[in-house]
């Protein structure tokens, strides 16, 4: 029963996605419909137009299996033979260095801002 409920609720999320896509297309926004759908759902929850229990199970199912949905795109790499050699190693190097720098900077900035704020209130 729970799985049926979850699937129906995923259907509701698809409706929101469809509305988001339509808005993006009609207004020529450079923002994907999924992000517009997200903002829309958030607003509808805030305004109590949509009740949390209508979508909570479906949302939880999708979010807990999120990694699975990324797998087919990752496998797309097989079509880029050039990336299997030196070029690919260079790309990986760029991504590793840049990812570490981004995480360090973001983490330290967030931590520093938190601590500063704490210092202000004390």
């Amino acid at each position: 029963m729970k799985i049926v409920k979850s699937i129906v609720q995923i259907g509701y999320l698809y409706i929101l996605l469809f509305i988001g896509n339509t808005i993006a297309r009609l207004l020529h926004l450079p923002i994907p419909g999924s992000i517009i759908g997200l903002v829309l759902l958030f607003l509808l929850l805030q305004l109590h137009i949509i009740k949390l229990e209508w979508i909570e199970l479906g949302a939880a199912l999708l979010l807990s299996e999120l990694l699975l949905f990324f797998i087919p795109s990752a496998i797309g790499v097989v079509d880029y033979h050039a990336l299997f050699g030196v070029q690919g190693m260079k790309v990986v190097l760029v991504i590793v260095v840049s990812a570490i720098v981004v995480m360090l900077v973001t983490g330290y900035t967030a931590q520093w801002l938190e601590q500063r704020k704490k210092g202000d209130t004390v």
């Binding site: 997200l38 699975l68 496998i75």
Partner: peptide, 25 residues
Amino acid sequence: YNTGANVLTNLLGPATVAFAVPIYK
């Protein structure tokens, strides 16, 4: 391969919309 597996990629759409739930909570 992707004609079938694409179904999973497709679920990224509603999954992105679903991020509204933890944010709302």
